[in-house]
């Protein structure tokens, strides 16, 4: 009997296994994207002229179809998860770099001046003042990047079933089991919603200093 959660054996994973794989393939690129974006964004804040060209480059990279990336990368990283994750990490930059730059720039000039005047050097200023104050903007960027990454992972199906839940779409086609496609879409949507909610929670925890909506001063 072909049940909703009966995963064809060619995928070599249980339903939960696919979910774990999917999350890994979706979230690691966002994390890597964040680690790459932080220094890039800081350079853009430091050297204003750098920001427009960097934005241009990330946008162009975002416009490169993932298939093209795969064709290029397959020579180096083969039909692997890494091949799927590299483009996803690159795509996340288009959201994360501007989010961090805007966040860091949102630090009021008098706050920055006060920090400088109190004798915080550039490094302390960045880690103790600019970055913490940029957290809400960074997490807003992470939410978009994460949700889009979760949906984009499925394209990995094209290179030897590296698309985690996305592979179900292919199997639905081969085995004439449309319920697998429904399963894939619903599960990915649920993952996206849960990941988004988790990030909202993280922001709440990290920013007790933000005015709550509707709360009186």
């Amino acid at each position: 009997m072909s049940g909703f959660f009966d995963i064809p054996s060619d995928l070599q994973h249980s339903y939960l296994g696919l979910i774990g794989l999917h999350l890994r393939e979706a979230l690691i690129p966002v994390l890597v994207g964040l680690l790459v974006s932080l220094p890039i964004a800081q350079l853009c804040v430091r050297f204003r002229w750098l920001y427009p060209p960097v934005l241009g480059v990330t946008t162009v990279l975002y416009a490169v179809p993932s298939l093209a990336f795969f064709v290029f990368l397959i020579d180096y990283t083969g039909q692997s998860e890494t091949t799927v994750m590299i483009p996803l990490a690159v795509y996340s930059l288009v959201v994360l770099v501007p989010a961090i730059v805007d966040g860091v720039r949102s630090v009021p000039p008098e706050t920055l001046a006060a920090a400088t005047a109190m004798g915080l050097g550039a490094v302390r200023r960045y880690f103790q003042v600019q970055l913490p104050i940029a957290v809400p903007a960074i997490i807003a960027g992470l939410r978009v990047a994460t949700v889009s990454s979760i949906s984009l992972v499925s394209i990995g199906m094209l290179i030897g079933n590296q698309g985690a839940l996305g592979n179900l779409l292919n199997d639905a086609n081969i085995y004439h089991r449309p319920e697998l496609a429904v399963n894939a879409v619903l599960t990915m949507a649920a993952l996206a919603i849960l990941a988004d909610a988790a990030l909202v929670l993280v922001r709440r925890v990290l920013t007790p200093w933000m005015p709550r909506k509707g709360a009186a001063r």
Binding site: T111, A114, A117, M118, G119, T207
Partner: peptide, 23 residues
Amino acid sequence: PVNTLRRSMGYVIQNAGLFQHRT
């Protein structure tokens, strides 16, 4: 050193310039 100098001088600015993320 510049930061030693600055730490020996209090500085008050318009709008206070408080660190909004700290108590």
